[in-house]
Design a protein around this nucleic acid. Structure first.
Lengths: 150, 150
DNA sequence: TTAAGTGCAAATATTTTGCTGTCAC
DNA sequence: GTGACAGCAAAATATTTGCACTTAA
């Protein structure tokens, strides 16, 4: 039986509990949406989905919760090359960093894990005497299908 | 006598001329600021500096010119890990892509060129069948001085 | 009990757009 | 001359904040 590829739902809440972060009904709704999201969500989508679980959730609570999660290093903030406007997208941080590729034609988002990326980060830490906390590699271009269709 | 490390001022205007892009007094002011900028500028700073060269330059012209330069692949848009708010920073694209590192404590921005980065991009193109147009690697963390001071 | 969190409304910040007039080619 | 570009003002978008009330621990 294969291991699950992502962590089990509920882990974000466990992390918060471990770190002594107060848990409210609203935060539970927001974290639950983040846990189960199948794609990258922006703040407005996150708000809408969280309100389905708890209608009282307010826009500012979403932003405040996102700030908390970023500070805790539990979520990453992405631009996805601004393919759809100027907003940001959020995803829970998993064990291994990955690269995001956005197709400039069809808008598809792809992810890629690479040892070379890990190696590059180690090189930066060593050669620049820089302690990495968070990193983001985003690439815009054309996916296989769109490249052929052009 | 060492070669200059960046291209000579005026090159952005030459590129535009080569590509048949209409040159106005306002665009000349904006391009000139970008050419000679010593650090990464956001749209507001770019506007202020351009207005010193041509007081008539309007905010919307700055944004419209930036869009044109991005489309032409002549400038890159950066977040610098949102160290100072949600805006974007712009820099003219030089021959070789580089990584941006932002110190989360002192706000210093550092740049780094790496063969490993080039190799990673080639790997993405090959392994993902993805044709890269633009890429952006930004890293947040602690610079050498701030790491010691913490 | 009480510090932290929340909703609400308003403010702020950033970027875009419609329109009319101007200018580069 | 004319189509691309400009300024201006207003709208659209995205995020933050002040304040009084609520709630988790």
């Amino acid at each position: 039986m294969p291991l699950p590829q992502t962590e089990m739902p509920g882990r974000l809440q466990s992390y918060c509990a471990e770190r002594g972060i107060r848990m409210t009904q609203q935060r539970r709704a927001i974290l639950s949406v983040m846990e189960t999201a199948k794609k990258h969500l922006d703040a407005a989508q996150l708000l809408r989905k969280a309100q389905r679980l708890d209608a009282s959730v307010d826009r500012s609570t979403v932003y405040r919760t996102l700030q908390m999660l970023k500070r805790q290093g539990l979520v990453d903030e992405l631009d996805l090359m601004h393919i759809h406007g100027e907003g940001h997208y959020y995803e829970r941080k998993l064990n291994r960093d990955h690269i995001h590729m956005a197709c400039l034609r069809c808008g598809k988002i792809m992810e890629f894990v690479s040892d070379v990326f890990d190696k590059l980060k180690r090189q930066v830490e060593r050669d620049c005497n820089f302690q990495i906390v968070v990193s983001r590699l985003e690439i815009g271009g054309y996916c296989n299908a769109c490249r052929a269709a052009k």
